[in-house]
């Protein structure tokens, strides 16, 4: 699997077209914003709206990555479940698929704003992971250094094609959402452009990870 290689605070990282991040030195795979159970939450809150297949789709894509990379550690960077109830209401088939993925590896749930405490699935939970020189947390802290975060679901345009993307500057990396049903925030949004340095890159997901100057 090829991806876009880049350094962050001395760590050699790879951004994949699938939206996942790979830190080869630690065999660490990081994905953000899975939003498992989104349709279930919608149904619970009164809209019958979305059919319940996105969880399966997200997990299948994650399983493919795990199978090919055989990571030692998997970091889910927050908003892994659409809310707490969604993590409890995960159908049995999906639950066992997830448990199989977690077997024999270190699995870390970073807590997000949607899922303060994903429960009963094993793995470790923590608000942030420090693994020198990097810090993994859900929402970027404005003054942080060497930080990996998610939350914003950034996307960017090239040749009138809009794709989910990573945002990268010397201080931080923001991951795109890995979940199937997730919208996005354009890189030109003031929130993102004020967070990212002037020379930031957007790394577009797709058949190949493509780096461009971050559109503002």
């Amino acid at each position: 699997m090829t991806g876009y290689d880049f350094p962050l605070a001395g760590a050699r990282l790879t951004a994949f077209g699938s939206g996942a991040l790979w830190w080869a030195e630690h065999r660490l795979l990081c994905v953000s914003d899975l939003h498992l159970g989104k349709s279930e939450r919608h149904a619970r809150r009164g809209g019958s709206a979305l059919p319940p297949y996105e969880t399966q789709d997200t997990l299948t894509r994650l399983a493919e990555l795990v199978a090919s990379l055989q990571p030692q550690t998997v970091v889910c960077l927050g908003d892994s479940f659409d809310d707490d109830a969604a993590s409890q209401a995960l159908p049995d088939a999906e639950k066992s698929q997830l448990t199989a993925l977690m077997q024999n590896r270190h699995w870390i749930w970073i807590t997000g704003n949607h899922d303060p405490a994903p429960a009963g699935l094993g793995g470790e939970q923590m608000p942030a992971l420090h693994l020198a020189p990097l810090t993994f947390r859900h929402i970027a802290a404005p003054l942080a250094k060497a930080e990996i975060s998610g939350h914003y679901h950034p996307k960017a345009r090239l040749r009138s094609t809009s794709r989910p993307c990573f945002l990268l500057d010397r201080s931080r990396l923001i991951l795109p959402a890995f979940g199937t049903y997730t919208g996005g925030l354009r890189s030109s949004d003031p929130v993102l452009s004020s967070l990212m340095a002037a020379d930031a890159l957007a790394i577009l997901t797709g058949p190949q990870a493509l780096a461009i100057p971050m559109p503002r």
Partner: peptide, 9 residues
């Protein structure tokens, strides 16, 4: 399209 995207990137 991918070729052109790569070129442009």
């Amino acid at each position: 399209e991918e070729k052109l995207l790569q070129q442009e990137a």
